[in-house]
Amino acid sequence: MTQSIVPMLIAAGDQAVHKVSPGSIRDSANPVESFMRDGIVVIVDIGVIAVALAIVFCLLRMLKGPTLVDRSIAADTIAMQVVALVILLTVRLGTLQFFDAVLIVSFLGFISTLAFAQFIGRRRSAL
């Protein structure tokens, strides 16, 4: 069963790769196009570091936060930053295989926020 599914998944991924023509893997003799292609790669590489630093700040707040509300805010923000990392990966690699995770992680973050709000309101104590 799995031996027949895995090559199909890989073939579907290859089709998704070849369907788009992103700028980061495009060859061009135009000086402005090649400059912007390299510039976007540099911006993405800096942005991964920035988002990782922001995740570290949120984890520190999750460790330190005096109340449960602070921890749930940090968890919601970390979900949004994971979405940002997935978008950065999509722009850097130029594939559409990971782009579905954007919508899924957004839904999961919203539903976890609702669950935390229900839990805090039901406990009637924010501590």
Binding site: G47, A50, V51, L53, A54, F57, C58, T77, Q81
Partner: peptide, 8 residues
């Protein structure tokens, strides 16, 4: 994104 994480 960075300012949001730092503000938290």
């Amino acid at each position: 994104m960075f300012v949001g994480g730092f503000g938290v």
